[in-house]
């Protein structure tokens, strides 16, 4: 009897500690957001939000902390990345789900996973070696002489980085469709293109959009690689060949000199908060869709 009691007791203890750790992790996550809010609070209370988010005047030495140039730059590189990456990744995912057999799919998992896991500094290095000179040549062809450090280079590099990510997410969405739907269309004599257009895309469009949105969120927050090719000039870019200064690069480049300028540290924490909120909103919406579909 006492053995049974002891086993029960042990089980109770373990159950409590497991639940405790899970709740602890959740509290920790809430705490992280709280710390960001706390650190950027001086900024938010001293300046109206319009001066912070919608102003492009960034002169920390004069007490001007407008973040809009950085937000626009981040949006710019992320949108360029999406324009390049999403058609290619979606088409490749369609090939793997509609045409390839299981063997090919499994064989390609390794290179795709590895590509997704390549450290961002390595992407940045490849960007400096390959993309920068190419974009420089391209700009000369377009009649503008630039070094190549530009929003376009950042976008192209990000496109490469998020391709495997969008590919594997959308492949999961496509593979979760029941085979009967496709078979019905094929039995009616539809070609592969017609099946994809009228059946596969119609039924999976929400999930595919979610996959693309997650790619966008990933691109928006990417730091080191973008920083190496984007030029880091704090002005709103007017063309794709202009340099820009995305939010993550702002944080990464300036964190060292926190103490010398009043309020500067709080401005950088506000930048981190803005970054976290924008990425958070997009990925929350997309993840909610994917969870609803039952991918997970």
């Amino acid at each position: 009897m006492s053995v049974l009691l002891f086993r029960r007791f042990k089980d109770q203890i373990v159950t409590m500690s497991l639940r405790g750790i899970l709740v602890g992790v959740l509290i920790l996550s809430a705490g992280l957001l709280g710390i960001l809010l706390l650190k950027s609070a001086p900024m938010i209370s001293d300046f109206p939000l319009s001066k912070l988010i919608f102003s492009a005047a960034w002169n920390p030495w004069k007490g001007q902390f407008g973040l809009s140039a950085f937000i626009v730059a981040s949006l710019g590189v992320a949108i360029i990345a999406l324009i390049f990456a999403s058609p290619v990744s979606l088409l490749a995912a369609l090939y793997l789900s509609e045409c390839a057999n299981r063997r090919l799919r499994n064989a390609l998992r390794l290179p795709i996973d590895i590509l997704a896991g390549v450290p961002s500094v390595v992407f940045g290095l490849v960007g400096v070696i390959v993309i920068i000179p190419s974009v420089s040549i391209l700009s000369r062809l377009c009649g503008r002489d630039t070094t190549g450090y530009s929003i376009l280079s950042g976008g192209i590099l990000l496109a490469i980085m998020i391709m495997p990510y969008i590919l594997s997410l959308s492949l999961e969405v496509l593979l979760s469709l029941p085979a009967e739907a496709r078979e019905a269309a094929i039995a009616l004599g539809a070609t592969r293109w017609e099946t994809v257009r009228h059946v596969v895309l119609k039924r999976s469009v929400v999930g595919l959009v979610a996959a693309v949105v997650l790619g966008f969120a990933r691109a928006f927050g990417e730091t080191i690689a973008v920083m190496m090719v984007v030029g880091n000039v704090a002005k709103i870019p007017h063309s794709a060949f202009d340099p820009a200064y995305p939010l993550p690069a702002l944080i990464a480049n300036n964190f060292g000199e926190l103490m010398s300028i009043p309020r500067f540290d709080s401005a950088l924490f506000l930048a981190a908060l803005v970054l976290m909120i924008i990425v958070g909103i997009f990925s929350l919406a997309a993840q909610a869709v994917l969870h609803h579909i039952g991918r997970i």
């Binding site: 730091t223 944080i251 924490f269 981190a272």
Partner: peptide
Amino acid sequence: GTPSIVYGA
């Protein structure tokens, strides 16, 4: 999906 620079900060 939160950027690691945010965790760094």
